[in-house]
Amino acid sequence: MLDICEYYEAESLNDAKRKLASSPSANIIAGGTDLIIRIRDGAMANASLIGIGRIEELKEISLCKNGDIHIGSMVTFRELEQNCTIKERVPYLGEAGGTMGGPQIRNVATIGGNLCNGAVSADAVAMLCCLNAVLVLESVNSTRSMLIQDFYLGPGQVDLMADEILTGITIREQDYLGYQGRYIKASQRKAMDIATLGCAVSVNCQEGTIRDLRIACTVAAPTPVRCSSAEKLAVGLKATSDNIMKIRDAALGDVTPRDSWRGSKAYRKQLVMINIQRALESLVLTDGGE
């Protein structure tokens, strides 16, 4: 028995926006895999919920004419993993999604919920940061877009107004064309676990030379971080073991993980280094490695 006092099933996006604007204390519920747990924990007494599960336009993944990919916020992790456009263009995003939860959870959990929930360990986030994903937030009165990095304000805190709905995520062609990527999730269990550290790398490497590198880590700071000094250092470097070591060492300066009983600062730093190294080795290494 959950402490829910009202549930409203929105008919359309406009309907959802209107309802949200008129009920300031209401919450959007997507897959409910974060929200229901909070309610069960007693953290949201008398919850009032607005369901957006019937809004078809939020469930689509589309390839725009200009090559951009648009992912609706209600796309589930399973759909993300199985979608042809994703598989063809950014397979590593689908693979990153595949590290989350277990099959049952991936069937209901949405990408929008993953972002809006604001957890530092959210598994879709790091790779979306590498992709410079643009979030689209809509309310009755306004539509805003912002880079995913700007969306995160602190642990559990996102730049989402009470009346706003995240409608979708855009990945621009320039951010994926020519890139390869890899997400390495460090967690104690191989399924049904939160990341001790999440590490995403995407790289544009031509003829053995790194043209552009993007590294994003989660659980490495209060919000997801891009390892910008490592990224800068990498540009123009040959993809050799030595250079990979330099890059990973530089990334240490970009992260500020903390000590907690879930994992020590030292261990998280180690994971930042080793997983950047391993991701890069698997993507670009030309000299055989080790």
Partner: peptide, 16 residues
């Protein structure tokens, strides 16, 4: 208690 739940208490899953 810090981890009296099945998320933080690392009971192995079938994948492990």
């Amino acid at each position: 208690p810090l981890n009296n739940n099945l998320l933080d208490y690392k009971l192995p899953t079938i994948m492990d």
